[in-house]
Computed example of a mutant assay.
Amino acid sequence: MRTINRAATLIGFTLLLAACSSEELGSPTVNVSQPSASETSGLWPNPYTVPPEKGLDVAPFLGNPCGLVSPGLLADEKYSVEGRPRLPGEDTTADVTGPYCGWSGKGDSRGLTVSIQSGNARRGAGGLVHLRRMYDEGRYAYWEDTSIGGYPAAYLDLADRRSAGGCGVAVAVADDMSFSVAVDAYADQPTEACSAAARFAEDVLGNLERGI
């Protein structure tokens, strides 16, 4: 039961980043107010955009989201190295949000999910700018700006689970593209959850930069 609840929580975090309303998940359409041209033009220093020369290409991982995380880091963090990929056309959540992959902790109930928000980009609502506007519209319980590996990022969630050992972070890799990392069930060390999410996010950035 704990495994089922953990999986539901992590999938819920992945879904909450979709730029559509809950009643539209079967056939998603954009349901957020559109940013102005100045917000999405890519002109630095808008805090949620990425200069063109720093943009990262997620295309090599759209069919292999599990490849976003290094096996060595998974082993160091005591997760199973074998992930569970979920792709559009095979999974209803991936149909809405984009491809994602989940891993389980070794010998405990921890969980990790990494998702590419290509679904938002496909609907013209990709990137951290749009996620921030969703927060401003009351979609998320909290939003905390941060930077990971030199890229704009934010800790956010539908409900604040940090005191219970759950944490999610979204990272912009282009003006119209972001990815997310969510961890759960760090109940014995709840303050470690966001640190773990940030470590995984930094690893994802490194793999995107290398394109492997």
Rank of each mutant, 00 (worst) to 15 (best):
C167S: 08
D188K: 15
E53F: 12
M177P: 03
L68T: 01
R84A: 12
N64H: 13
L73N: 05
V183D: 04
T113K: 09
A59C: 02
L10F: 00
C101E: 10
R199T: 03
S109A: 15
A174D: 13
G119C: 13
P45K: 10
S80E: 13
E144V: 11
G89K: 14
L62V: 14
H130D: 01
E77W: 00
E23C: 13
S109I: 10
N46H: 15
P85R: 02
V183S: 08
G138C: 09
R86C: 00
R199E: 10
A197L: 05
R162I: 02
T40S: 12
T93F: 11
E202W: 09
L68N: 07
M134I: 02
M134G: 00
G127L: 02
D188F: 06
A141R: 15
N5K: 12
A154I: 01
S80M: 12
L17N: 06
S109N: 13
G55S: 15
L25I: 11
T92K: 15
T3K: 10
F179Y: 15
A75P: 04
D176V: 03
S115F: 08
G126M: 09
P35K: 02
Y135K: 00
P85Q: 03
G98S: 06
S21E: 13
A94Y: 10
P71D: 06
M134N: 01
V81K: 04
A153K: 02
A172N: 04
L10T: 04
K78R: 14
P45C: 07
Q189T: 14
G63D: 13
Q189Y: 11
C101A: 14
D203V: 10
G168M: 15
S80P: 01
T49P: 01
E137M: 11
H130A: 04
L205K: 05
K78F: 01
D57R: 11
E24N: 14
R6D: 11
I116R: 02
R139P: 00
C194S: 09
V114G: 06
